[in-house]
Design a protein around this nucleic acid. Sequence first.
DNA 1: CTGTATCCTCGGGGATACTG
DNA 2: CAGTATCCCCGAGGATACAG
Lengths: 124, 124
Amino acid sequence: MKWVRAPAVVGHSGGMATTPRPGAHHCGIDAAMDVIGGKWKVLILWALNDHPRRFGDLRRTLPGITEKVLTDHLRELEADGIVDRQAHPVTPPHVEYSLTPLGRSLNTALAPLGDWGREHVLNA
Amino acid sequence: MKWVRAPAVVGHSGGMATTPRPGAHHCGIDAAMDVIGGKWKVLILWALNDHPRRFGDLRRTLPGITEKVLTDHLRELEADGIVDRQAHPVTPPHVEYSLTPLGRSLNTALAPLGDWGREHVLNA
DNA sequence: CTGTATCCTCGGGGATACTG
DNA sequence: CAGTATCCCCGAGGATACAG
């Protein structure tokens, strides 16, 4: 989500000697939030959980998302090492997106949150 | 974060008979994301995890946040049943914010995500 | 089919000043 | 101390058209 955080120090503790990079994080959760903070990120993660999907497949799975936004989010997730992009140079183009091991571990870490939402927010 | 989602149906499954409310969610994760989607929400949750805090205390704990934004987020978290606001009618005013049981359960569900972020994003 | 290229909207968030 | 009240910016996200 490209939030550039102010020098928030919640968990305080020892200071990070050398600030990792501009827009540094300060605790695990907001670091993770930066990765999954896009409007459709978690939905993409979820959609990719069971098996790889092609671009058009994803678009159809996420009604309402535009090509531009889907591309943007996929590129960011790819840059973060969450999803893997496999392009087969044929005509018509054939591209498959899948979760990397890191992406799978993220999805696992997301599960409790999903359970929480299902139990406490949904089924009102 | 007040995103009004399009009719996304990732987890498919049976359809929600009666749509819960405008801006409905469709799986636990994005339902949860709606609750913690503010820029400072998870930081507030984190700050409140160990013990209640007063308004000014929170503001000092979250360097960079403004009164307006802190108030907005606290009001939203309160509306979502995540934080509890206890005002003591004295002068000067004394107000304490704390996590509700629901808030504590949310924080627990957030923990794995925090671990993930700490392990895979931080300490680059 | 899988994307680019443009342009634009909109509201979350920030800055600042003020009040009970 | 604990907030309101205003005004405003900016960029993520959307709409649309086009391309290899």
